[in-house]
Measured scan of single mutants.
Amino acid sequence: MSGNGNAAATAEENSPKMRVIRVGTRKSQLARIQTDSVVATLKASYPGLQFEIIAMSTTGDKILDTALSKIGEKSLFTKELEHALEKNEVDLVVHSLKDLPTVLPPGFTIGAICKRENPHDAVVFHPKFVGKTLETLPEKSVVGTSSLRRAAQLQRKFPHLEFRSIRGNLNTRLRKLDEQQEFSAIILATAGLQRMGWHNRVGQILHPEECMYAVGQGALGVEVRAKDQDILDLVGVLHDPETLLRCIAERAFLRHLEGGCSVPVAVHTAMKDGQLYLTGGVWSLDGSDSIQETMQATIHVPAQHEDGPEDDPQLVGITARNIPRGPQLAAQNLGISLANLLLSKGAKNILDVARQLNDAH
């Protein structure tokens, strides 16, 4: 009898209710805020589980004197976190989706994509230029951005401005803007500013005609071990179906173009009346040469937790077992079709030249 009692006690200790789920994140304040929001949602869904947040620095956090596009290494903000995932030191990792490459290392998958916040870019102005827009900034004003995508589009749109690289986390960039006289304004992701509670610093939100956004911008991705079915089931509740389908289309477009950090590629997606609209573009580094096109596809946005595919093969690095396969494939095909259209119009040449120029500098 006593033996059975011990077995029952052991089973209770090993039951999922007692389990601590370890969540990996970057150390920056924004990353911690984003991770806290994901953990809060998981806690609400699984009140019996405990969650421990483990923060670590990544290569991208450490190399702050070089433009991201020049470092010449993929997975700048993800490699150390993936290493911890691989060694079973954490069970899942919360990322900004735009930091996750469209091809993940073997053994990993994006197990959830959370509801997207505003994906557009924002302009934050130096205190002396508050009330201005990019259009009304004085001639030769210097605007800071760490992104080739932003610089290429904005140089084309605002030729009277000069664009220079600015690195560091959000706090560091804002301090550089406010305390030094080098920059009249800087460009940042609206979602990051909003998550930090800095709505009052948003001086201008850039519309798609001015600057399309990065693939996955404004959404959070939760990376897990691809074979860890328990954790895949656990994080599945975080999937937002519309965000998922938009981001599958965007990531398929980028992957098929073979774009990345070192080339200016941008997108804009919208879901309306059962249609998914995808606009994508590529630019030369100075913005003088560009190709942009829009395509659409009829896609039914499923309700969360309709029964999805059981075999769960990944699409552009994403596993969404609780979302039907048909809409996911339709979104992926839309991204591939748009990429093929741009490639047929000469996108590869623009991107190759951009890559060579970026590598040469």
Rank of each mutant, 00 (worst) to 15 (best):
H207K: 13
V222N: 00
T78R: 03
G197C: 13
E306L: 14
T133Q: 06
R116K: 03
L97M: 09
L234S: 03
S57K: 00
K132R: 11
A320P: 06
T136P: 05
G192H: 01
Q229C: 15
I33W: 12
Q356P: 15
I248M: 05
K140L: 11
E250W: 03
P302G: 15
L220F: 04
Q153G: 07
Y277V: 04
H207G: 11
A31D: 00
R321L: 12
P119C: 10
T145Q: 04
L148K: 14
G326A: 15
A214K: 03
Q332K: 15
S28H: 00
G326S: 11
P302V: 13
T133E: 12
A31K: 00
G48L: 13
V39P: 01
N340Y: 11
R195A: 04
V103P: 12
S141I: 06
T298N: 08
L285T: 10
L170N: 09
I318V: 15
L49V: 14
Y213G: 09
D65W: 08
S337R: 14
R321S: 12
V23L: 10
A112G: 08
H120I: 06
I291V: 07
I21Y: 09
L285C: 06
Q217N: 00
V39F: 07
A297D: 11
G317T: 07
Q292P: 07
D99K: 03
A252P: 01
D289F: 14
H256T: 14
D36N: 10
E139Y: 12
P208M: 12
A320Q: 03
E209T: 03
Q328E: 13
A67L: 09
V282D: 04
C211W: 07
E306K: 15
Y46A: 08
Q332F: 04
L342T: 08
G317P: 11
N200M: 10
V224F: 14
K132G: 13
D289L: 09
H239L: 05
L154E: 03
P105Y: 03
E82I: 02
R149M: 02
L64W: 15
E117Y: 11
V23M: 12
C261F: 05
I166K: 04
L97K: 04
Q34N: 09
E117D: 13
K227E: 15
I21S: 00
D359W: 13
G317D: 04
G346Q: 01
Q194T: 04
S96K: 00
L137Y: 04
T109C: 11
H160W: 10
K74N: 13
K345L: 12
H207Y: 15
Q153E: 05
E250D: 15
V222F: 02
S344L: 02
S57A: 06
L177R: 03
I110Y: 04
L104Y: 08
K98P: 03
T269F: 00
P106T: 13
E73G: 06
G131D: 09
G221I: 13
F129D: 09
D61P: 04
H126K: 12
A44E: 12
G280S: 04
A44C: 06
E139S: 09
G221R: 01
T279F: 09
R164G: 10
K98W: 00
H256L: 09
K272S: 14
D289I: 15
K74L: 07
S147W: 09
Q296M: 02
A354P: 14
V316Q: 02
L64E: 00
E82A: 11
Q332P: 06
S288C: 11
P47R: 11
A331D: 07
L134H: 02
Q328N: 01
K140R: 10
